[in-house]
């Protein structure tokens, strides 16, 4: 029996684990097969305080994991199958084995939102990607597009420009929502072009990406563009689908009640699975610490009663 089971191993989950273990709470962290969350798919993180020269996303996650391990967090690097929050203790099933915990912190984060256009799904890994740092090297000398207008689209484009012959950012609006510094880097890069007011309607090609159908939402014109790679960076979907009894909003973000509690007593939430506003590594870590402190307080109340 664990005091706390944490679901998720991004900045939110790992920070929670650092706090719960330091509070001497027996902690199990279900890290998932692809542990470390979205930062594992990035390169240089320049806005996490404490690293004046920046730090590589994967290095930051490894450091956080080591810190959580140092205080005794137990890790399972598998995806969980199901949860049962209906009775105490709560149950989490992983690879056929059930683990029990008095409190649960949900920190499952968010995953890539795909375009959901014809031709996309079957070409993921065959020219369609959501991770330029992982796949850019395969597009040396090729022509690519990046879809999106936020910080992650800017990063994808910047990383790709080091390998690809050309990078075109396709964005459905006429301005980016990305931070000024990231936008500036992209707009000053001679290899990167921008197509404003444009949407990808279809991805063409047999077995691999060969082109896209574009729609200009200002002029209502449809056009074809031959292309080798499509990098999708239009946002993320919260990983809340496995929690049947936990309230979410329409987009799937878990609803927060009074300091990182969910609608279920003893189940707390932290990070991108509830945060549709900030979505930063540092805010996720902050939520992780807050949820852990709330869980600790709740467990104290439970013992006292």
């Amino acid at each position: 029996m664990y005091d706390v089971i944490i679901l998720g191993s991004g900045p939110a989950g790992l920070t929670s684990a650092i706090y719960t273990t330091r509070a001497d709470l027996k902690t199990l962290l279900i890290a998932g097969v692809k542990w470390g969350g979205q930062l594992q798919l990035t390169t240089l993180v320049e806005n996490f305080p404490g690293f004046p020269e920046g730090i590589q996303g994967p290095d930051l996650m490894l450091a956080m994991r080591k810190q959580a391990e140092r205080f005794g967090t137990e890790f399972i690097d598998e995806d969980f199958d199901s949860v049962d929050f209906s009775t105490q203790p709560f149950k989490v099933t992983v690879a056929g084995k059930t683990h029990e915990g008095k409190a649960v912190i949900i920190a499952t984060g968010a995953e890539t939102k795909w375009l959901e256009v014809p031709g996309e799904k079957e070409k993921i890994g065959r020219g369609v990607s959501s991770c330029a740092p992982c796949d850019a090297v395969f597009f040396r000398g090729k022509n690519t597009i990046v879809v999106g207008g936020g910080d992650s689209a800017m990063e994808e484009a910047t990383v790709l420009s080091k390998f690809a012959d050309s990078v075109t950012i396709v964005h459905r609006k006429d301005s980016f929502r990305a931070s000024e510094i990231m936008q500036k880097r992209v707009l000053e890069n001679p290899k990167i072009k921008v197509l404003w007011n444009s949407e990808v309607k279809e991805i063409k090609g047999e077995g691999k990406v060969e082109g896209v159908v574009l729609f200009n939402n200002k002029t209502n014109e449809t056009s074809q563009m031959p292309i080798d790679g499509v990098f999708v960076a239009i946002g993320h979907i919260p990983n809340s689908g496995k929690f049947k009894d936990i309230e979410t909003d329409e987009a799937g973000f878990i609803k927060v009640h009074d300091h990182y509690k969910t609608n279920k007593d003893g189940v707390f939430v932290a990070g991108d699975v509830h945060d549709s506003h900030y979505k930063q590594a540092v805010t996720a870590a902050g939520y992780g610490s807050a949820a852990a402190l709330e869980a600790e307080r709740w467990l104290e109340g439970m013992e006292a009663s």
Partner: peptide, 12 residues
Amino acid sequence: TAQNYGIMSIPS
């Protein structure tokens, strides 16, 4: 070899 088998994402 990677190119022969159309590897465009790893791990494959």
